[in-house]
Simulated scan of single mutants.
Amino acid sequence: MTDDSLIIKHLQAIRAILGEHGERLERIETRLSSIEHTVGFIYAGAGDDRATMQGLARRVERIERRLELREGDD
């Protein structure tokens, strides 16, 4: 076996390994993107929940004032 063919075989083995790692990196990137997307939805949902809770707190305060269960802050 000549030195050239040995080098070619090594380069082919290196290329195969890099190809495997490339496929793995693509899968990792896809999964990371999915996680980022999910976290974004969770974050947006938490903001919606906070707004809902603030609205409910205002309504309860209004009801308490009307029923004279709480002194008015106005």
Rank of each mutant, 00 (worst) to 15 (best):
T2G: 13
T2D: 12
T2A: 12
D3F: 06
L6T: 14
L6A: 12
I8L: 03
K9Y: 05
H10G: 09
L11W: 08
L11S: 12
Q12Y: 04
A13K: 12
A13P: 02
A13L: 08
I14C: 15
I14W: 07
R15Y: 15
R15M: 13
A16K: 15
I17Y: 15
L18Q: 06
E20P: 11
H21V: 14
H21I: 13
H21K: 15
G22C: 10
G22I: 10
G22F: 14
E23H: 05
E23Y: 11
E23R: 11
E23I: 12
E23L: 13
R24M: 08
R24T: 10
L25E: 02
E26F: 12
E26G: 13
E26L: 04
R27Q: 10
R27D: 10
I28Q: 14
I28V: 11
I28S: 05
E29G: 10
T30L: 13
R31S: 05
R31G: 01
L32K: 13
L32E: 11
S33M: 09
S33C: 00
S33W: 01
S33D: 05
S34Q: 04
I35N: 14
E36S: 07
E36H: 07
E36T: 14
H37D: 12
H37W: 03
T38M: 03
T38Y: 07
V39R: 14
V39C: 08
G40A: 00
F41Q: 09
F41G: 07
I42E: 06
I42W: 01
I42M: 11
Y43G: 01
Y43F: 07
A44Y: 12
G45E: 04
A46H: 03
G47V: 00
G47C: 04
D48V: 07
D48P: 00
D48T: 07
D48E: 15
R50C: 09
R50G: 10
T52G: 04
T52Q: 01
T52Y: 03
M53V: 04
Q54M: 12
Q54H: 06
A57G: 03
A57W: 03
A57P: 05
A57D: 05
R59E: 04
V60P: 00
V60N: 02
E61I: 08
E61F: 02
E61M: 08
E61D: 06
R62F: 04
R62S: 02
I63W: 05
I63P: 01
I63F: 07
E64M: 02
E64Q: 09
R66H: 05
R66W: 00
L67K: 05
L69S: 02
L69H: 02
R70I: 04
R70Y: 02
R70L: 13
R70M: 06
R70W: 08
R70Q: 08
E71D: 01
G72R: 12
D74Q: 06
